[in-house]
Every structure is written in structure tokens, then in C-alpha cells.
Computed example of a mutant assay.
Amino acid sequence: MQYVNYLREQATQFRDRAVQEPEADEATLRELKELAETCEEVAAEWEAKHPAG
């Protein structure tokens, strides 16, 4: 599950970056949030296809 953990860490970093960059334009902030969502979605799909155990 290292891959899933990595993806979730990346999602957190993208979200943190969006918060830390309040002067960034809306397109950049939206992209960071979308990247975070994509990481979370891929992590969830990976977990569904590769259950722990």
C-alpha cells in the first residue's frame, strides 16, 4: 500500500500548497485542488482493485 500512501501524501501536499499560495490566480488554485482530487481518486481505485491482506 505504499503507492496508495504516496498518492494520499501528494494530495495533501497539493491542498497545502493551495492554502499556502493565497496570491495565486484562480486557475492555479483550481488545478492544485483538481490534482489533489485525482490523487485521492486513483488511491481509492487502487485500494478497490488491490485489497490489503
Rank of each mutant, 00 (worst) to 15 (best):
A48S: 11
A52P: 01
R8N: 13
E40H: 03
P22A: 03
K49N: 13
P51D: 09
A11R: 06
A11V: 02
Y3A: 14
A43I: 02
Y3T: 12
E21T: 12
R17N: 07
E34M: 03
L29K: 15
E21W: 08
Q2S: 15
A44Q: 15
E9A: 13
E45F: 05
D16P: 05
V19Y: 02
A52N: 10
L32V: 01
L35N: 13
A52L: 11
A11D: 06
A52T: 11
E31Q: 13
E47V: 06
P51N: 10
A43L: 02
E21D: 10
E37Q: 13
A24I: 04
E37F: 02
D16W: 03
Y3M: 10
A36Y: 04
A43K: 03
Q20I: 01
E9R: 12
A44N: 14
E45N: 14
A52R: 14
K33V: 01
Q20W: 04
E31C: 02
A18N: 07
Q20H: 06
A36K: 08
R8V: 00
E37Y: 04
Q2K: 13
L32H: 03
E23K: 09
L32N: 02
L32I: 00
A44F: 05
M1D: 11
E21N: 10
Q10S: 09
V4S: 14
P51R: 08
M1I: 03
L7H: 08
Q13W: 03
L35I: 00
Q13V: 09
E26A: 14
V42L: 14
R17H: 05
P22I: 07
